[in-house]
């Protein structure tokens, strides 16, 4: 099964604010972009019957509750409506994902963890009839460097279900 751990800052996210400012002030998206938010996504493949006990250990290791909040869902990645979600990850080797897996498996002994992928979900609040086309343009022109990153426009679903920390 796949454990999807979405993490976001509960303090102001300066990186998301900088991306929004750059889009609006430097790249001609004024009046098109209402807001930009960001989540970090860990997609963790695990070989386990009941995942929730494992989830507690994973959350304790990967989430800093002093500044972050998270949401966990199993298998399905459920996303809210209202924005276009753009998933950006590395297509070259991701050292941080490897480190995260090593922390979980070697240090915490969570041998049920088989694979860890890490990406960012950029939540683009777009005012346009062509929201996905605009999101594509933003991804190509700013969010990725195609020599190391890849992106995917995800479909937003109804409200997420799962465990909210």
């Amino acid at each position: 099964m796949r454990i999807n751990l979405r993490i976001w800052l509960k303090i102001p996210d300066a990186e998301a604010a900088t991306v929004k400012n750059t889009l609006v002030r430097r790249m001609g998206f004024e009046g098109v972009i209402d807001d930009v938010r960001r989540e970090r996504l860990y997609s963790i493949e695990a070989d386990v019957g009941n995942p929730w006990r494992l989830v507690k250990h994973i959350v304790r290791e990967l989430v800093n509750e002093n500044k972050e909040e998270c949401l966990v869902s199993i298998d399905e990645l459920d996303l809210d409506d209202g924005y276009v979600p753009v998933k950006v990850g590395l297509h070259i080797e991701d050292g941080e994902a490897i480190s995260a897996k090593n922390r979980l498996v070697r240090r915490l002994g969570l041998s049920a963890v088989k694979r860890v992928e890490r990406s960012n979900i950029w939540k683009l609040y777009i005012r346009s009839d062509e929201r996905e086309a605009v999101a594509e343009e933003i991804a190509r022109k700013l969010l990725i460097n195609p020599n190391k990153d890849s992106y995917e426009i995800l479909r937003a679903r109804a409200r997420a279900v799962g465990m909210r920390q």
Binding site: A14, E15, T18, V19, T22, R26, M27, L142, L143, N145
Partner: peptide
């Protein structure tokens, strides 16, 4: 720009 997003990219968009 604190290497936000990735190193160099925000500065590259400046006029």
């Amino acid at each position: 720009y604190q290497d936000r997003l990735r190193a160099g990219v925000i500065a590259s968009k400046e006029p």
